[in-house]
Every structure is written in C-alpha cells, then in structure tokens.
Amino acid sequence: MQSLVEESAATEQQTEFNSVISAKRVNVFYGDTQALTNVDLEVPENQITSLIGPSGCGKSTFLRCLNRMNDTVDGCRVEGEILLDGVDIYGPGVDEVLLRARVGMVFQKPNPFPKSIYDNVAYGPRIHGLAANKDELDEMVLTSLEKAGLINEVQNRLHSTGTSLSGGQQQRLCIARALAVQPEIILMDEPCSALDPIATAKVEELIEELKENYSIIIVTHSMQQAARISQKTAFFHLGEVVEVGDTEKIFTSPSDERTQGYITGRFG
C-alpha cells in the first residue's frame, strides 16, 4: 500500500493519508455513451471526501461504481480498476453482495422500507446473519440508532413504520440502517438534497461525527456543504476528474480554471 501513497503524493500536492479505495483509469459506459473517462482517485481513510461538479458530470455514476450498484443498471459497463484493500472490486471472485456490506450507501431521497423502524435497521444484520440471537440483534439496532443520533427520537416507537418519520429523521434512519451492517466505507449520494436546512444541519453534524470510524465519500451539489464538512474534494466535469486535493486548497486556490469557474459560480 505504501507505494500507492507515494505515487499519488507525487502527482498531487496534498496531505499524506492512507488510501482505502483507489480508482485507476476507470471508464464507465451506458450502452454506447461514455459516462466516465479515465478517472483516477484515491480515497483517504477516516476522512470525508466530497465529489462536486455540475449535474450530469458523472459524480454519482462514479460513486455507484464503488459498491457496484451500477451492476443493477442494464447496459452499464465498467472498465479499469477500483481497488479496495488492494483487491479489484470488479475482479473475479468478488461477491458484490459482500462488497456492499463493506461499502454501505445512503441515497439522495430517504428510502426507508415500508416496515417498522426496528425492522429497517435490523434488515442488514438479518440478511448477513450478523446477529446470533435476538438480544444481539436488539443491541445492534440500538447501537446503530444511537450512532445515527436518532435513538432519543424513536426510542419509544421502534415498532411504528419508518415512513412515519420526518424527512430528516428518515435520512438518519437510512444512515443507521447502513451502519448496522458495520461497513468500513459509506457512500452518500446527495444525502441532504431532499431535506430542509435544519434537517440538513443535523445530518451534516452526524456525518462529521461518523468520520471518526468510517471513511465517507459524499456526492453533493452544494459547494458550501463540501467546504463545511469534507477534508478532501474532487471536482468532476464532463465525466473526468479535473482536480483533486485538500478541500481548503480547492476552494481557495484551485489550479484548474474550470474548477475556478465552477466554484465562483460561472457555470454549473
């Protein structure tokens, strides 16, 4: 792993870090159209990486490559390497089901299952067989809800349906649901875009707490959000990564003029 870090440090001037995911020359096609072109990206451990860029630039597509969610889309083809712990996740022998257990995901619109709050969170542990018995499962559900900062709000109604919660609560429920599978990496696809500012603040606060134990990659259309919470930022444009670096540097002195244009609001 060490060689990787040195390699990337040589190309980009940024803080030293341990990389959990490294994407190398990733190309993605939907049928005949190319959505991503030669994307290289190193994702640091226990930090928040944000992917920004105008809509349709491929940032969500890239995110969905990282846990092979694109497999469920007909006609989608991925080329190149995406290494997790040094294993190419598109290589033979990789089970996408288990990959997704290690790399969790939170979606744009809160999508709790039409089940009780408890069952929503218990879903992951149940399918993966993580809990040996009912007590362990209860424990896992409660811990996950606690980590997601939802425990106080739902403690007394664990068995009412997940859809009865408010939007922000639903999104935190979805985060708790992802945490219950005990992933190492959490992918978030514009998790706050459907939420009001107060709920957004709560979720952002939660994301910042989570980075202690998890590596987080977040796609966002809000540059302020990227600046507020992330340590590292990648700017996508027309299916390419234009610039990657420490968030501070990207927002204060971008080296590429397209980045400059985007963050100053000239396009996007």
């Binding site: 990789v94 257990a101 993580l130």
Partner: peptide, 12 residues
C-alpha cells in the same frame, strides 16, 4: 481469492 484471504472479514 478475496474470499479465502479474509478480505470480507469472517462476519459476512
């Protein structure tokens, strides 16, 4: 073989 090497971890 990622499965054999414990890449996924025992639990899953």
């Amino acid at each position: 073989d990622p499965k054999a090497s414990g890449w996924y971890g025992e639990k899953y």
